[in-house]
Every structure is written in structure tokens, then in C-alpha cells.
Nucleic acid binder design. Structure first.
Length: 809
RNA sequence: GCGGGUAUGAUGGAAUUGGUAGACAUGCGAGAUUUAGGUUCUCGUGCUUCACCGCGUUGGGGUUCGAGUCCCCAUACCCGCACCA
């Protein structure tokens, strides 16, 4: 009989689904295992071959875990709010909810076709009101704890999407999604205080089993730096607080720089002699896009404020104050003390504007020629009164203490991480459940009014003035104040796409609960996620956001663990033939449907796992797919050629035990490519040595997580299903016997002077004398030994023997 | 600029603690089966003057009996961050 994947695969998919084989049990004596992959955005294009890479990997892991005897939760869902759906709806005049429904149906059928062992009873859809009710609920809790607030601030504004973006969504000055320039715009926005969690988000990484680059990337993004805040007086009497990581260089501060947006500049403006020039600079800075700001960062610009000076608090000297866009309004205090002798940027600015450069740390080259920035023990303080003679390391705490005693400064930690801009001026998102009352201010919607449903609108187009399409729905916008009952208005912005994905893994634990986001019992049982695989591109977005929300939920007693995910791994991208990113415009997108039709889902799964190192990018190759099909054909054909014995064929015994060990270890380490290679090698052995029913049985168990349809079919055909049930249901991952993984005899390398001369076949663990005798019998060795005597023997058991020789006397 | 990573046949990629480099697969070559194509099976396949010798893991040095693996220098490519004081 031929391997008819087109008949086999739908047959088993139906049986698995009808039998609810992959349903997770809410109560079980087995240990639990929660495996998670990032749920997809259901785009109109459907799945492409990049999607199944992480899904197949986690499917393999969870199928093996089931066979190891775990109660497994392996769920799937859809992150369905988002711009592409909304844009499609605008263009084609369909409701986004309709588009979403169709796309989800399409994705679902594609996923089922690939045979993933998802628990389909637990599917979540972030656009389902029963789901986003709880997304809104979490927002209300954040608001009640003071972690959600509305603020007017310069935000990233995408000129094409007509929408604000989070810092994390701006890549190289352009919109991550559409590539249009991003500019700064003053807008009133809902913000989430993720900065309040900055330190915990760093500290708690230590206890987690995350791949190292995820940890470093998150730490760098949060960007902790320690230093001090120092208060300078201005000649106007105002205080100017600056942040510095080098308070030790205070004596060398010869000027100050404020960001163009700094409040004091506004206050001083009428009194400045060059007010026009200052205003012109402010306008220029405001109109620059982020891209322009970064591109122009080679050349420093700025304007000196004419009419006000700062006073260095330790030297008492009056120093000039500049505004410049190299000082960011959103970091620290938006103002710096400039120490050109010991900071590259200040040095560059000072050279251009002719500011004084005073050395206060000796040990470097001439500070008139370059800044000396070393922060280690090489520098000794000079020109610094009571700090003179101290190292930089000692001077920092000394001056910080001094400042604290005088009340003009204090130690301070700053983070690069900014609060999360949480409003979007778009339709297709969760409505923010807040009400504005002229008398009472912002009021949270009472929880019993959740979910606050998205109203029907006539147009989903964003407005040019930057307001959400919801703002036009006057009937919906007008409401009553939950506090005083007077007339009030609803918030018309919606939440960003990251909202729904920040807690979806919790919903899987108890997806149909109407009284809570999930019951305490289920949260206690399933938390935390044991293994979460996802893309590196989410490291500073989804992964960070969801850790933040989870910590908040922990703090208010909703979830039982401080961290949501115990282990995090990451997969590489699948590139098109030619090594380029798959994209519609390049025309190199591979559709999984086509591969399934031509070769079957098992072949596709196997190939995607065999393609290369799971963590690295891999290039698609149509040819290489055929090799995996060939392998499955060979396994299939074994079933017709094997003998009836249930015992292992003696010649295969060692290979079988070695392969069990290899496949078991490799799945845990996500080295799927070598696990498959080992099984291929085993099949080659079976062809060479003959194969018994028992040999094939073990192979099927090992191969089942990778190619489950074919394995189920053979399992049944060979009569194992009658006694043991479906492969997917039984927990009998094969065990191996370490002592049997070694053959009774081994090939050892023979070297003379470290050069390979040949190999010998000797019993395992042979003594040195035996090995040397056997080595001497090798022709090439005998030749090399002519006229020589052995000076030294290096013997590595079962590996090699190396004879060191010298001329015989 | 700073931080992290990678470099192995024609190709994708393997190589516990330093111990037979190139597993496994693709491609290619030869043969068998087949009316033929495809499939399947067998054998071969790092380079080299193809027997010997020699040379081989980006390049150059070093440590070692022995280096893809460890150390130093250089080159190329990739990723992250990028005026964060």
C-alpha cells in the first residue's frame, strides 16, 4: 500500500478533534505542563510558512510531554484587533468584525490542516466582547491604582496611520508598521506607568530561564543608570535640576544645556534678549521628525540664552545656559550640566560654541584635544577642591554625600524606559472605559457596565485632526457621569494592539469564565506558563508589556506568580529561496497549503524542523522538502518489510537506544534538526540490518511528535492501537538504557605524531596495551614506526591512540 | 559609536570535556529496475596531479602529543541600541 497522506491526514485530524484528544484536563493527578506560542494576528493573507515553525516546535514539545505523562495545556487564539483589518474594512466597506471572523475561520482551517495538537475548546479572540471585557477591566484596575493617567506630552505621531505610536513601535524614526515618517506631536494621551516597574522588570529576570539575548535586550531597553540629581541656581532665582551619572565632575561643569521644550525656557522667554532666535530654534526642533533628529546628530546645534545664567553650586561661577536638541526632554530632568572635558557630546558642543573646557579628572590625554571619559580607577580628581586626589570611583559617593548634606542634590537612578503611550486614535481596538465629566474629571466606568462595546460607526477612517472615528458617534460619546450623574463624554480613543496580548495566556486557563478573567483555582493550577516560544521582535514590546501587566495583577492579588513565563525561547525567521525575507512584493512567499497538497502536513512539519538551527534564520528550499518526503516514504515502506518479532533486532539494539537518548535530549534542547537526522540514520540502519515489528514500534513512538498523522496510521495498521489506543493519548515515551547505547566494539583512531594513520576495531574499554598492539598492526603505522621507538603513548579510551615516536638509538 | 552574534564541501547544516572534521539531507555522477519520464534501490561525492603523498573549518599568529573547538590580532557579514547626560 502506498503512503497516501492525502487520505491519512484528514482522517486523523477528524479523529483527534472528535475525540477531544488534546483537551487539557482542569483536574488531573498528572503533573501539568503549559506550553505556549504567540497567537497570530489573523491577516487576510492567511498563514505563510513562517507561522508553523514555532507552532510545530511547541507541538513536538507538548506531544512529547503528553507521552511523558503530563497533563498538557497547549492553546491557540487570535490577536485580532489591529490596523490591517481596519484598513481593509475602510477600503472594502465591510465591518472589521466581519473581516476578522472570516480571517479567523481561514486561519483555523489552515492550522487544523497542519495537525497541531491545540485544545480547540479554549480558543480566545481578543475582539470578542467577552474577552475584551477583561482587558477593559484590567485597565480600570490600573487606573484605580494610579498606574493609568492622562497626560499631554510630545508623542510619536505616524503621519500615514494618523495615530500615535509607542516608543517601541518607532523604528529608525519611521512607523514600524507602515514605514511613514514619525513626527513629534503634543497630544493628550492615556499613559501606563510601566516605569514604576522598571527595577522589578530588571531584577526578576535573574530567576527566569530566558535565553540570554532576551534578557540583555530587555535590560538594555529598560536602561538603568545611576547617578545624582544636582540643583543649579539660575541668575533669575529659579532652580535648574539636572541629572548626571558623573557628579564627580561637577567642578568641571562650564555650561548648561536645556532641551528646547524645557519649561524654564518658556518662563524666561519674554526676558531674553534673543527671544526670537530661541523661538525659531524651538520651532525647528519641534518640526523635526525623529529620523531627522538622529540623522543630523553628527553636527550639534543650539542657542545660548542671552539674559540668564546658571551658577555652578560648587565653584560659584556663573556659566552660560544653552538650549539644544541633543538634550532630550523626555529623559532625566530634560536639563544637563555640561562637562566638556569628560563627555564626548559636551566636548563637541563646547568646541563648536567656544565654551571653556576645564580638566577635573587627570589621567587622560590633553582635554583640549579630546574628552577623557574613563570611569574606572585610572582617573584622579584635580581642580576639584575637596575631591582632589580621589579616584573617580571614590569621588562619586563623596560628592553625592556632600550634595545631600548641603541639600542641593541626591543620588538618583534613571531609566531609559518611558511610560507606555496607551491611546490609539483608531476604531478597531478596545474602547477605553473612561468618562470625562466637567465637574468630576476622569471617571472610570463602573465595572458592571463592562464590556463597553464598540459602537457601529459609518466610517472607520481616522480623522485628519487626529481624533478617533468614535468621536463622530455623538450618541455614543454622550453619557452620564458615573460619579455625579451629570452630562459627560466617553473617551473616544481605543487601546493599542498590545493590550489584548498582554494577558491572553491567562484567559486560556479558564476561557469561558464570565465572572473573572480566570478563576483563582485555574490560575493556581496552571500558572505559570512553563515554556513560551516567540519571536525576538517582541522582546521589548509584547514580552515586556505582558510581564508588566502580570506583575501588576500579582500586586493586586489576581494572579499567583510574579512572573508569567518560566522559560522563553525564540525561533529564527524562514527566508524565501535566495535568502531574502518572504514578502508579497518579492513574490517569494511560500504558502503552506501548497506544500501540504503536494507532500502532506507531516512532510512540511518535518522539513520546517529539519531546515536548520531553530534559533537562526533559515532559507526555504523546495528541493530539500523532497528529502523529508523520501524519509517518510522509507519509514512507511518499513512497515511492509518488517518481521513479526516484538523484540529489537540485535544488530539494531545499540542504535535504537542511542537514538532514543538523542531524540529525547534534542527535543528538550530544541535541536529538532539533529533529532530528525538521528532518526534518519536509524532508518538507514533498519534498511541495512533488517527491521522487526518491535524496532519499528520504537521508531514510531519517537517520530510521532514530528509526523503524527503517519505514525498514528502505522500504529493502528500494525495492531498497536487495538491494545494501547491512539498514539496521541498514550503515555509511553520510550526509555533508553544507557549501558545499551554503546556497542560492544568500537572504531578507534590511530595517530602517529598526532597525524591520523588509520583506525582499529577493538572491544569497548580495551586496555592501553591491547590498543597499542592493535595499532602497531596497522600497515601505515608499522611503516611510520620503522627505525623509530615509541617515546610516549596518549590513549583516550574508545576514542583514539596517539603514538609519539623518536628515532631509535 | 556601543553591545551581542556568526564564519565549516557545490548547498542546508553535524561535530559531549580540545580527541577520526563534513553526521543527516540536498545537489551532482555512475549503475540497476522501468517502454519512457518520474518513483525506488545500490555505489560514489572536501580539495589536489584523483594510486601514494600533501592540503583542508574566513585570514594571520600562539598554546598543545593533538585545535572547527582555547588565547591574541585582522577581515567580512548579521542582529540589537543609538545624542539616555
Amino acid at each position: 500500500m502506498k503512503y497516501d497522506f492525502a487520505a491519512i491526514e484528514p482522517k486523523w485530524q477528524k479523529r483527534w478533534e472528535d475525540g477531544k484528544v488534546f483537551a487539557a484536563a482542569d483536574h488531573s493527578d498528572k503533573p501539568k505542563f503549559y506550553g505556549l506560542i504567540e497567537f497570530p494576528y489573523p491577516s487576510g493573507q492567511g498563514l505563510h510558512v513562517g507561522h508553523p515553525r514555532p507552532y510545530t516546535a511547541m507541538d513536538i514539545v507538548t506531544r512529547k510531554k503528553r507521552m511523558d505523562g503530563y497533563n498538557v495545556l497547549f492553546p491557540m487564539g487570535f490577536d485580532a484587533f489591529g490596523l490591517p483589518t481596519e484598513n481593509y474594512a475602510i477600503k472594502n466597506h465591510v465591518h472589521p468584525a466581519v473581516v476578522t471572523k472570516d480571517n479567523i475561520a481561514h486561519f483555523t482551517s489552515q492550522l487544523k490542516m497542519l495537525g497541531f495538537g491545540f485544545d480547540w475548546d479554549r480558543v480566545v479572540d481578543t475582539t470578542d466582547p467577552k474577552y475584551y471585557k477583561w482587558t477593559q477591566w484590567i485597565f480600570l484596575q490600573l487606573f484605580k491604582k494610579g498606574l493609568a493617567y492622562k497626560a499631554t506630552m510630545p508623542v510619536n505621531w505616524c503621519t500615514s496611520c494618523k495615530c500615535v505610536l509607542a516608543n517601541e513601535e518607532v523604528v529608525e524614526g519611521v512607523c514600524e508598521r507602515c514605514g511613514a515618517p514619525v513626527i513629534r506631536k503634543e497630544k493628550s494621551q492615556w499613559m501606563l506607568k510601566i516605569t514604576e516597574y522598571a527595577q522589578r522588570l530588571i531584577d526578576d529576570l535573574d530567576g527566569l530561564d530566558f535565553i540570554e539575548r532576551v534578557k540583555t535586550q530587555q535590560k538594555n531597553w529598560i536602561g538603568r543608570s545611576t547617578g545624582a540629581e544636582v540643583v543649579f541656581k539660575a541668575t533669575t532665582g529659579d532652580d535648574i535640576t539636572v541629572f548626571t551619572t558623573r557628579p564627580d565632575t561637577l567642578f568641571g561643569a562650564t555650561y548648561m544645556v536645556l532641551s528646547p521644550e524645557h519649561e524654564l525656557v518658556k518662563k524666561w522667554l519674554p526676558a531674553l534678549k534673543n527671544a526670537d532666535e530661541v523661538q525659531a530654534y524651538q520651532r525647528a526642533a519641534a518640526s523635526k521628525s525623529d529620523l531627522e533628529r538622529t540623522e543630523l546628530n553628527k553636527e550639534k546645534t543650539g542657542v545660548c540664552l542671552d539674559g540668564v545664567k546658571g551658577v555652578n553650586p560648587v565653584t560659584g561661577r556663573e556659566i552660560p545656559i544653552f538650549i539644544s536638541d541633543y538634550v532630550l526632554s523626555t529623559y532625566g530632568t530634560g536639563a544637563i550640566m555640561a562637562v566638556p572635558a569628560h563627555d564626548d557630546r559636551d566636548w563637541e558642543f563646547a568646541k563648536k560654541f567656544g565654551c571653556e573646557i576645564i580638566e577635573v579628572v587627570s589621567g587622560g590625554e590633553d582635554v583640549q584635544k579630546a574628552a577623557f571619559t574613563a570611569k574606572d580607577e585610572t582617573g584622579i580628581l584635580v581642580n576639584s577642591d575637596f575631591l582632589n586626589g580621589l579616584t573617580v570611583k571614590d569621588a562619586i559617593p563623596a560628592i553625592t554625600n556632600w550634595l545631600e548634606e548641603k541639600g542641593i542634590g541626591a543620588a538618583k537612578v534613571n531609566y531609559k524606559l518611558r511610560d507606555w503611550v496607551f491611546s490609539r486614535q483608531r476604531y478597531w481596538g478596545e474602547p477605553i472605559p473612561m468618562v470625562w465629566c466637567g465637574k468630576c474629571g476622569w471617571q472610570p466606568l463602573p465595572e458592571d457596565q463592562l464590556p463597553l462595546l464598540l459602537p457601529e460607526v459609518e466610517s472607520y477612517e481616522p480623522t485628519d485632526d487626529g481624533e478617533s472615528p468614535l468621536s463622530k458617534m455623538t450618541g455614543w460619546v454622550s453619557t452620564v457621569c458615573p460619579c455625579c450623574g451629570g452630562p459627560a463624554k466617553r473617551e473616544t480613543d481605543t487601546m493599542p494592539q498590545w493590550a489584548g496580548s498582554s494577558w491572553y495566556f491567562l484567559r486560556y486557563m479558564d476561557p469561558h469564565n464570565d465572572n473573572a478573567l480566570a478563576s483563582k483555582e485555574m490560575l493556581d493550577y496552571w500558572s505559570p506558563v512553563d515554556w513560551y516560544n516567540g519571536g525576538m521582535e517582541h522582546t521589548t514590546l509584547h514580552l515586556l508589556y505582558s510581564r508588566f501587566w502580570h506583575k501588576f495583577l500579582y500586586d493586586i492579588g489576581v494572579v499567583p506568580t510574579e512572573e508569567p513565563y518560566r522559560k522563553r525561547t525564540s525561533h529564527g525567521m524562514i527566508l524565501g529561496e535566495g535568502g531574502e525575507k518572504m514578502s508579497k512584493s518579492r513574490g517569494n512567499v511560500v504558502n503552506p497549503d501548497d506544500v501540504v497538497n503536494a507532500y502532506g502536513a507531516d512532510t512540511l512539519r518535518l522539513y520546517i524542523m529539519f531546515i536548520g538551527d531553530f534559533e537562526k534564520a533559515a532559507t526555504w528550499s523546495d528541493n530539500a522538502v523532497k528529502g523529508c518526503k523520501r524519509f517518510l516514504d522509507r519509514v512507511w515502506n518499513l512497515s511492509e518489510g518488517c518481521n513479526d518479532s516484538l523484540a529489537h533486532t540485535p544488530a539494531n539494539e545499540a542504535s535504537i537506544h542511542k537514538t532514543i537518548k538523542k531524540v529525547s535530549d534534542d527535543i528538550e534542547a530544541m535541536k529538532f534538526n539533529t533529532a530528525i537526522a538521528a532518526m534518519m540514520a536509524l532508518v538507514n540502519d533498519f534498511y541495512a540490518n533488517g527491521c522487526s515489528k518491535g524496532d519499528l514500534r520504537t521508531l514510531l513512538l519517537l517520530l510521532n511528535p514530528f509526523a503524527p498523522h503517519m505514525c498514528e496510521e502505522l500504529w493502528e495498521a500494525m495492531g498497536f492501537a487495538a491494545a494501547e489506543g491512539k498514539m496521541a493519548c498514550q503515555s509511553a515515551w520510550p526509555a533508553y538504557d544507557e549501558s545499551k547505547t554503546a556497542a560492544s566494539a568500537v572504531d578507534m583512531a590511530v595517530q602517529v605524531q598526532g597525524k591520523l594513520k588509520g583506525t582499529i576495531h577493538v572491544p569497548v574499554d580495551s586496555e592501553e596495551a591491547v590498543v597499542v598492539d592493535a595499532a602497531k598492526a596497522v600497515d601505515k603505522v608499522a611503516k611510520a614506526l620503522e627505525g623509530m621507538e615509541i617515546a610516549k603513548v596518549i590513549h583516550v579510551k574508545n576514542k583514539l591512540v596517539n603514538l609519539i615516536v623518536k628515532p631509535a638509538k
